[in-house]
Design a protein around this nucleic acid. Structure first.
Length: 268
DNA sequence: CGATAACGCTACTTTACGTCA
DNA sequence: GGTGACGTAAAGTAGCGTTAT
């Protein structure tokens, strides 16, 4: 993907570290945030619309990861048949489902907290490749789950609904982080392009000044009335209120706004 | 119409585990 | 083979917005 391709996508630009995160975070929490080398600098947040790079990578990963293996630890969750009858017609019903879900989780937690040796240490779940693949597939279809979807997916995966929920939360977070990295790279490229353009314009300005000094006095016009497009090299006068029709030069019709993303001429 | 509780979400953090030098 | 540093991902926590009551 080139810069030009990126630039053809609509963008949403904002400041990270000082944007929504700060707005929604208490001062207490803000002070506890990490500001290490990677995250300390205030930076622009710029979202691309449409399918993201990460989503593309994700699709690739899903199909490379699909290889079924059975993990005995995945049998922790036994779905109660009573919890499998749903009506998605009302939010209230979904809330009720949520209550059932909590009860189920409580039971399962009691079981899963007890290891073979009877200890209660926190064991880290490792999802099998098959479970990960199914979760990724589901995430491709919808990045958030309603209670019924969560319940169904948990049943299919032999996981607790809470584990499915956590996986989706973390997955969304990873997607966002990845997108931020992509946006950062894009902004770096924009910055480099602008720096280069600025350097080029400075050089042209110096050349024009030198040219002006080398010309006879009668040919020298006031600086404000003479402009030259650096790309097409047409000369134009820009004096406001003067009789333009009498000017021997063409007038630049537009201000010189340079868009680094379009990578076009500065003025033409 | 404001207060409240329940819920889901994000942002951030902690922790367990795998990998590698 | 043991070990510590490091990365990754599951899970915990705090706080906020929304919605129903």
């Amino acid at each position: 993907m080139g810069v030009d391709d990126l630039c053809n996508t609509s963008l949403v630009l904002g400041l990270s570290n000082f944007s929504s995160t700060v707005e929604r975070t208490s001062s207490k929490k803000l002070s506890s945030q990490k500001f290490d080398g990677k995250n300390s600098e205030p930076s622009l947040t710029l979202r691309l619309s449409g399918e993201t790079y990460d989503q593309i990578q994700m699709v690739k990963k899903v199909y490379s990861d699909i290889k079924v293996s059975h993990d005995p630890s995945a049998d922790l969750y036994r779905q109660d048949s009573a919890a499998s009858s749903f009506s998605n017609s009302s939010v209230k019903r979904e809330r009720e489902i949520g209550s059932e879900e909590i009860e189920i989780e409580k039971v399962v937690s009691r079981v899963s907290d007890e290891d073979e040796d009877g200890s209660n240490g926190r064991k880290k779940l490792r999802l099998t490749k098959a479970q990960s693949a199914l979760l990724e597939e589901s995430f491709k279809q919808h990045s958030t789950l309603n209670p019924k979807q969560k319940q169904d997916l948990a049943r299919d995966l032999k996981l607790r609904p809470r584990q499915v929920e956590v996986w989706f939360q973390n997955r969304r977070a990873r997607t966002k982080l990845k997108q931020t990295e992509v946006d950062c790279e894009f902004l770096k490229k924009c910055c480099e392009t602008l720096t280069e353009e600025n350097r080029r314009l400075q050089k042209e300005l110096q050349e024009l000044k030198a040219l002006k000094l080398s010309q006879p006095l009668y040919m020298q016009l006031p600086a404000a009335t003479l402009t030259m497009c650096p790309s097409c090299e047409r000369i134009g006068g820009a004096a406001v209120g003067e009789n333009k029709s009498n000017s021997p030069f063409t007038i630049a019709p537009k201000p010189h706004f340079y868009n680094p993303c379009t990578n076009q001429s500065a003025a033409c």
